[in-house]
Design a protein around this nucleic acid. Structure first.
Length: 156
DNA sequence: TTTCTGACA
DNA sequence: TGTCAGCA
């Protein structure tokens, strides 16, 4: 078994904060008008990255795009803006916790033949065995299986 | 071209 | 919220 990615590479790959969008891009991606986005900002609901001056264009990080999409989802379900924001704030708390757990639980990706395994870290205190999670038939069957592997069998 | 603010509907 | 003006 060989590592596809180790944790440090995964972190880099999942770091979306490096991607930023201008208001026109957010508008076309989300369907929320620039006028609406500026209005939401005036209400303290969203905030662009810090701007050098008032006249320069707004720039939003990926996280803000996510928040905007979540607000839109609740809005489309018939919620008022106020309620939509309330739901999003609540949801984001759970998402943060979920992300933190996954970030610390996933140690890397391992592959053997055509199967990808998620390395969940040391299984025993001595660190002799590693717990891997995988799908028997990826796609059709969503059932996750586990396998214990001797650390010696894992190639860096 | 795009975005900004402010104003009016 | 949409739209328009007048700028940068």
């Amino acid at each position: 078994m060989k590592y596809l990615f180790k944790k440090e590479y995964l972190k880099f790959g999942f770091n979306m904060s490096q991607y930023v969008f201008r208001i026109g891009e957010i508008e076309s991606m989300s369907g929320i008008s620039a006028r609406q986005l500026r209005y939401w900002e005036s209400k303290g609901i969203i905030e662009p990255l810090e701007r050098p001056d008032e006249q320069s264009g707004r720039v939003y990080p990926f996280k803000m795009f996510m928040k905007i999409m979540m607000i839109k989802t609740f809005l489309d379900q018939g919620n008022t803006l106020k309620n939509a924001v309330m739901h999003v704030d609540e949801t984001q708390r759970f998402m943060r916790a979920t992300h933190n757990i996954l970030a610390s639980a996933v140690h890397g990706l391992v592959y053997e033949d055509d199967t990808v395994f998620i390395d969940l870290g040391d299984f025993d205190a001595e660190g002799r065995q590693r717990l891997l999670a995988y799908q028997e038939n990826s796609g059709e069957d969503e059932k996750v299986s586990y396998r214990l592997v001797d650390k010696a069998d894992l190639e860096e």
